[in-house]
Amino acid sequence: MNNNEHIIEVQDLTRTFGAFTAVDHITFHVNKGEIFGFLGANGAGKTTAMKMLSGLLLPTSGKASVAGFDVFTQTEKIKKSIGYMSQKFSLYDDLSVLENIEFFGGIYGLKKQDLHIAKDLLLSKLGMEDQARSLVSSLPLGWKQKLSFSIAMIHKPVLIFLDEPTGGVDPITRRQFWEMIYDAAQEGTTIFVTTHYMDEAEYCDRVSIMVDGKIAALDKPANLKEQFEAESMDEVFYKLARGAKRGDG
């Protein structure tokens, strides 16, 4: 588990809840700087796996390291090294844009001066200078998502987890969001992303598909399409997940 090129290294990782095995001996790795798509049907075990990799949930067995830290013993170090954003939990609605930036910057231990620079850079990059003092609740969803992505990156993490970041977002903003993902990847941040939009799976360097707690397939989108004799990732997904036995809990 000392491969420096692998920012995530997972071996036989398992998590059970009572008699139920949510994640069942998964083994895979994520390369440094890659955009890794983590797909699966509702209830396949994606959320449980992501929680373990982000240091929020202890695995039952197996091994895993994230950004060089062990998921059993170094969860606090993992949390400091990663960024996390999801559609469900992102920002504080009743704080302004600026207050959210300051709050999360503070949480991640940015120094006052650094935070000041980061703040201005972030606002100008997003073109949101005029909205700095608006409450987050007043922003359209697409803006919120772009803002929460930028805030999740404020401490320059080596790795960011994006949990359905584009759900319900309009098609133009959805693509702008992916441009931000690409730019972040180009600057060296590793992206670990889940989505229900199968066209977005095509934008990933590699994609894994979880079915019933196991990784049923993992490869470049082009190879997966070839392997499953499918025209699109939608078809690949359908062929794999159709046979799933369980729904989400």
């Binding site: 699966g40 049907a41 509702n42 359905e164 759900g167 229900h196 997904f237 997940a241 159709r242 729904g247």
Partner: peptide, 10 residues
């Protein structure tokens, strides 16, 4: 079907 995976959507 919001937030539902592609198979369940179908």
């Amino acid at each position: 079907t919001t937030g539902v995976d592609p198979v369940s959507r179908r």
